[in-house]
């Protein structure tokens, strides 16, 4: 199985050609850095995505705090993660790196704040 894909590891967006005939020996060409083959293998075996969003904040200068998963989570859990985000309300002050949800959607990855929000 030969697949064409675009690497999303960085904004370069390299066009990868992925030979996944042997799932234990996936061959990747077209990448310009080592992240390409890693991305391609993950994409074939178990695709992952970073999830970013925002949660409500009370008592802050801004009503919303931006958040992200600390690392990429399995693609099929994106919407479970987002549902969980809706249930969270933070209290100002919020600091970058504050843990917002521990082990989101049971995937072992935390959601952390990406924004400094001072008290109003």
């Amino acid at each position: 199985m030969i697949k064409e894909m675009i690497c999303i590891s960085c904004p370069m967006g390299c066009h990868l050609t992925v030979d996944a005939t042997d799932i234990n020996d996936i061959k990747v060409t077209g990448n310009t850095c080592p992240r390409g083959p890693i991305y391609a293998r993950n994409e074939i075996i178990a695709p992952k995505r970073m999830v970013t969003g925002s949660v409500r904040v009370t008592g802050g200068k801004i009503p919303m705090a931006s958040v992200k998963t600390r690392e990429a989570i399995p693609k099929q859990l994106i919407f479970d993660c987002l549902e969980q985000l809706k249930t969270v309300t933070l209290k100002a002050p919020v600091h970058i790196g504050d843990v917002v949800i521990v082990d989101v959607a049971g995937c072992g990855v935390d959601v952390i704040a990406t924004k400094e929000i001072a008290e109003a």
Binding site: C10, P11, M50, T52, G53, S54, S66, V67, K68, I96, T114, K115, E116
Partner: peptide
């Protein structure tokens, strides 16, 4: 950057992938 809460910023500058608010910070 404050409203660009998605990730993908800073790979060249900081060699890691940040969100907009983190890059600004």
């Amino acid at each position: 950057l404050n409203q660009c809460i998605h990730n993908g910023f800073g790979l060249h500058t900081f060699k890691e992938e940040l969100t907009g608010p983190e890059y600004a910070a």
